[in-house]
Design a binder for these strands. Sequence first.
DNA 1: TTACATAATGTTATATTATAACAATTTAAA
DNA 2: TTTAAATTGTTATAATATAACATTATGTAA
Lengths: 133, 133
Amino acid sequence: MDKMYKENNLSKNQQIIFDLINKSSEPLKAYTILFSVQKKGIKAPPQVYRALDKLVETGKIHKIESKNAFVACRNSNCEISKATAFSICESCEMVDEINDAKLTKYLTSFSDKKGTKYKRFNLEFFGLCKKCK
Amino acid sequence: MDKMYKENNLSKNQQIIFDLINKSSEPLKAYTILFSVQKKGIKAPPQVYRALDKLVETGKIHKIESKNAFVACRNSNCEISKATAFSICESCEMVDEINDAKLTKYLTSFSDKKGTKYKRFNLEFFGLCKKCK
DNA sequence: TTACATAATGTTATATTATAACAATTTAAA
DNA sequence: TTTAAATTGTTATAATATAACATTATGTAA
């Protein structure tokens, strides 16, 4: 049978779900995604979670842990999600990815009191966004 | 009736659940806690979640967002959980609270490109702990 | 002390988030 | 072209968390 996808490295379900997240202005939850893509034939949670897992793994999206929700990566510098930072508005729930070279460098090179370095971090800032202030 | 608690500022359920988390060497999940405290009369999820919420609110414990689990605060400097940082071992799942004044100061005073400052942050580092390395 | 507001508790049911397990198909590539 | 790996489809269920409501305990102020 003809190949069903090839233009890029995403599979059909991955592409559908990435597109949805990518054009969203806010973090999307797994079941919100599920309901949105049912018309496209994605009918069950495992299909969504598998695509999300892969997209996270490849750095195309990030999971906002404090919200159990997903955003598209806006930052070519966070190679495969080793170093992620977000600002989260406590009022409107808006999430922005922070792309700050100095911050990344500071945290990437951080070592704790025992001298241990870490290969990955996730940082979530909370406050009020410009609109809500 | 006689007052049931007063030695400190925690209620009965809060104290039971705090004690359990405080003496644990690893993060505890809500349902693990629930099973552990059923013999003490705490029988339903809302009782656990309410105590956890209050303990988080007052800074006695922290939630490890990437694990949906809770640890006791080991750091008198993270006043009411405004500035939390943890190291998480990807192999043995061990979690340590990081208490590093420079790090805290750096992140507390961080402002993004638009000049926005944040009133709270949570940082999770991932890597291998000393034992697992 | 009594009366009142607030906080905490107990309880049932249910909502939300996530994975296990297995069969089938598609893809890449040897 | 046949084989391994990745992806998909599907059903069921596990794990995490909250809604809603009734009751009791606690702190405080009249």
